[in-house]
């Protein structure tokens, strides 16, 4: 059987060891491992993830290693969501602490979680960013997230009309 430790190479050419258990929490790595059963174990290249970000991801995986299997959990959640509003609170104290980071870092982790396909982490990051967006006006959001306003006045007028105006309201 394969060894208990997996090595990966990050975008900044570092080789990092992580336990099989943690590696398998990433669907991306997991499927690569399955495809390569019996092959020589060599470092898995992760060209989109830096060592700094990967360490964060491993931190998260270590904390959540005993959570129920991700696939099953997500399925259940999705079903429930049909009937109930998404609960946007981050209830886990450790998670709360984890997302308390600079926006840059948050986005990097989100992208890494997406690429590595770590569902729980991806959801957590989405939730966190969504919470940041709540209660803000478009202007405030642009400022907070450094986004250029590329909508013309006509676009905005059209959107307002779609959301704001009624037939009687010309």
């Amino acid at each position: 059987m394969a060894s208990e430790s997996i090595s990966v190479t990050t975008s900044d050419d570092q080789t990092i060891q992580l336990s099989r258990k943690h590696a398998q929490m990433s669907q991306t790595i997991n499927s690569m491992l399955e495809d390569s059963v019996g092959a020589d174990q060599e470092a898995i290249p992760l060209p989109n993830v830096s060592s700094e970000v990967l360490k964060k991801v491993i931190d998260w995986c270590t904390h959540h290693e005993n959570d129920p299997a991700p696939v099953e959990k997500v399925k259940k959640l999705n079903k429930k969501r049909e009937y109930k509003a998404k609960n946007s609170t981050i209830s886990d104290e450790w998670d709360k602490n984890f997302v308390n980071a600079e926006l840059r870092v948050i986005v990097d982790i989100l992208l890494a979680a997406n690429y590595l396909d770590v569902k729980g982490l991806f959801e957590l990051m989405c939730k966190h960013i969504a919470n940041e967006l709540k209660g803000k006006t478009p202007d405030q959001i642009r400022e907070r997230f450094g986004i250029q306003d590329d909508l013309t006045e006509e676009d905005k007028a059209a959107m307002r009309k779609a959301w704001g105006a009624t037939k009687n309201d010309s």
Binding site: L110, C126, I129, A130, K136, T137, D149, L151, M159
Partner: peptide
């Protein structure tokens, strides 16, 4: 796609506002 995932966590009003941020 990732943006959509983020936006799916929002309430209606926030969603409308976010849609007016940029294209």
């Amino acid at each position: 796609e990732i943006l959509s995932s983020i936006l799916s966590h929002l309430d209606f009003l926030s969603l409308v506002r976010c849609s007016m941020v940029c294209r």
